[in-house]
Amino acid sequence: MNGEEYLVKKAINRDSEAFGSLYDHYLPAIYRFILLKTGNKVTTEDLAHQVFLSAWQNIENYQAKGFPFSSWLYRIANNAVIDYYRTDKKHLSLDNIEEAAAGNNLEEKIDQRFELNLVRTAIKELPDEQQTIIIMKFVEDLTNKEIAAALGKSEGAVKTAQHRSIQNIKKIVNGKYNQKIKEA
C-alpha cells in the first residue's frame, strides 16, 4: 500500500488529518484546473472549496480500482465546472491567470503575459473535452490512464483526443498571434 492509498484509507475512516494531507497535495492542481476553465479567481476558489467539501463528505464512495485519488477529484471538479456553466454563464476575466503565472522581471512579465494570454484564450476556444485533456496532460502531467479514469474514456480515445487537441491549439495560437500583430 503506497502513501496515498494509506491516506485515502484513513480519510475514509474519517481521519481529518489524512484528508487534510490529501487536500494540501491536490488543491493546487484542482485549483489550476478550475481556474483555466473558468478564468475567474473568485469562482475558482468557490468551486475548488465545493469540490473538496464534496470529496470529504462522500469519500466513502471512492473506490480505488487501480486509479489514483486524483482521477476521482478531477471527475468531481469537471462536474462542478459543467454545473457552474450550466447555471451561471458569466463573462471571463483572464487577468488573474496571467498575473498568477507571470514571472518577476517586468519585461519577462509582459512577455509571459502576452504568451499566456494567447494560450489561455486558445484553450478556451477548444471543445470542452479537449480543454480538459490539454490541462490534465500538458499542465498537470497526468498519465493517459489517469485522464481516461477521470473522463470515463478509454486510453486510446484519450490519446487520439490529445493529438487533436494539440494540433487545434497550435492552429488557434497562430491565428490569434497573426491577428494581434495586424492590430498592432
Binding site: R32, E45, A48, V139, D141
Partner: peptide, 9 residues
C-alpha cells in the same frame, strides 16, 4: 502550458 502549471492558490 507548463508555466501555467506554476499557478498556485
Amino acid at each position: 502550458l507548463k508555466k501555467i502549471g506554476q499557478i498556485q492558490p
